[in-house]
Amino acid sequence: MANILVVEDDKFLRELIVRKLKEENYNVIEAIDGEDGLAKIKETKPDLVLLDLILPGIDGFELLSRVKEDPFSSQIPVIILSNLGQRDDIEKGLRLGAVDFLVKAHFTPGEIIQKIKNVLG
């Protein structure tokens, strides 16, 4: 089954989405901030990254652009799952190479899984 990296600094949210993903039989890798996220990408080369934007240290935008710049990771699809949702944020995220931009409060875990399934095909 596909490996999914969840980069999310809020412990409870991370637990919820990880639980849902595991129920859907995905292999889940967790990262608690941007730096951790970059390291885990190098280490595991996941099939998809679920990325929060507001993170301590290296933020989601920064992580995204580094992932896309590096040929090793540039092909990994990244779905942004964030509290941000203004048009400029969304445009910036998509411009940097995210495949989708989900505003946390606007999607249920089930809908998020559906988006992941769509991307992984």
Binding site: D10, F12, L13, L16, I17, K20, N83, K104, A105, T108, P109
Partner: peptide
């Protein structure tokens, strides 16, 4: 963030 946690 908390609203999302509650929702989920």
């Amino acid at each position: 963030t908390p609203l999302s946690a509650i929702k989920w």
